[in-house]
Design a protein around this nucleic acid. Structure first.
Lengths: 246, 246
DNA sequence: CCACCGGACATCCTATAGGATATATCCTAT
DNA sequence: ATAGGATATATCCTATAGGATGTCCGGTGG
């Protein structure tokens, strides 16, 4: 019964390369427009080309890099202001309903469902307390915890909604904009309100809590977005050229 | 100015392998649960392993195959009835709004936008006339044209909505269920209504046309879905085992 | 008869070499 | 000086070989 024994999930080199590259892009070590040379990366990262190809193919599917056949991969540009707004409009359409579904779902349906729901409370404040020494890494951890929370909530309601929301990769794009530190406290509080509504099986409350969370989150990110955009346009008026090849 | 000259887009072996496998899965030549052995495929398809890995990685991202590290790939199971309903609920949330946006968008914004919009009319009846000799292949062509139409409509409205809708891969999953022939005529008529509303710049009409189209489409597919599901459950009550390894 | 265990096999994963292609540089001619 | 073209280099793409791992099957003990 208690077969919760998690297999070590042996990680292949392609997995390592994938998460490593993803991490670098999200931390802006690799800026948008950077050319990603395959055997260049193979040399610097000490991998071979084959696992790197698989990693890059996945990153392309996630929308973090773009591929041009027989030419190479480049890091995807940041979201424009319009794209940012549209992304949140989509989230506002999907996530509140997913949260409502999660609260409506009968508890006994999935045996492990309870554990997951209780886990929401922890997830809601997962990266709460202390900060990592490296600010960017801490930011990355927070973003990942945030993504996990939103995904878990949706997963309780509907696998299809969860997939759709996950594939938005909203967090991937959002992270690359600068994130104010006080975001975290507010975000956690709102997450806990959502989790409480779901655990308490209050569908309408859950839906409304998620909607408010997203609306506030949009405002929070929007300011950072404006800063990033103006800074970018000031720095380099024309951005047609590729950056340093890696 | 008229640089419409489309570069041949040289197709790499990974691209060929990807579309070839995708085609086989969609035509149910490779049924759900089938084990996809990498060097087995390499032998039968006369490719090498490297491009096949890239193709499989992309198929995994599209949700058509599942990967277990150090074990292999398998073809994804068909959608359940609940998943099917959720998928259409998501589409009903996103696509009507995308259609409205497409109708609202100022014509001059994109120079090539006009061509694309006019193309919608053709796209709406693209695979209309004659049928291919192979019914399954014709079905595949129709599904692809349908996917293109929905994607183009969304793309006129918002790149983010278009991405989100494309990544649902609704057509990929739907296609694998059987498709009644008379679907096509009804589908085309509804598509043309949508295209007309967009070209005529009537946002509310476009939104409503898309909504009605999706609702009818859901009913059309639902019957086929029930047939497929009951047939499947009758054929093999337990489906835990992997099928013939390819 | 069932459970546990060890070995053989198939398959995945990784590394590396060679052919093919796009890009950049340099030169020449107008 | 600028436009056009040829050459050279870097890089992508493909193929193949070998090490590592999971799975399956037969045997032994309880």
């Amino acid at each position: 019964m208690g077969e919760m024994l998690v297999v070590p999930k042996r990680e292949t080199l392609a997995d390592k390369a994938h998460s490593e590259l993803k991490s670098r892009i999200l931390q802006s070590v690799l800026e948008p427009g950077t050319k990603l040379s395959i055997d260049g990366l193979a040399r610097t990262m000490r991998f071979s080309q084959t696992p790197l190809r698989e990693a890059l193919a996945r990153l392309e599917a996630e929308g973090l890099v773009e591929r041009r056949p027989l030419v190479g991969y480049t890091v995807t540009p940041l979201l424009t202001s319009k794209e940012f707004n549209d992304l949140f409009e989509i989230r506002l359409l999907l996530e509140p309903i997913a949260a409502r579904m999660a609260a409506e779902r009968p508890r006994k349906e999935h045996p492990e469902g309870l554990n997951e729901i209780v886990g929401l409370e922890n997830l809601a404040q997962s990266s709460g307390g202390e900060f990592h020494s490296d600010a960017k890494l801490s930011q990355l951890e927070f973003t990942e915890a945030d993504a996990r929370f939103h995904w878990e909530v949706a997963r309780h309601g509907s696998s299809q909604f969860a997939n759709a929301i996950r594939r938005l990769d909203a967090h991937l794009h959002l992270h690359r904009a600068y994130l104010e530190p006080e975001f975290i406290r507010e975000t956690e509080a709102e997450h806990q309100a959502i989790a409480a509504a779901i655990i308490g099986k209050k569908p309408l409350a859950a839906e409304e809590a998620m909607r408010r969370h997203l609306e506030r989150s949009r405002v929070r990110h929007a300011t950072a977005f404006r800063n990033a955009e103006s800074a970018a346009s000031a720095a380099k008026p024309r951005a047609k050229r590729a950056k340093t090849t890696q």
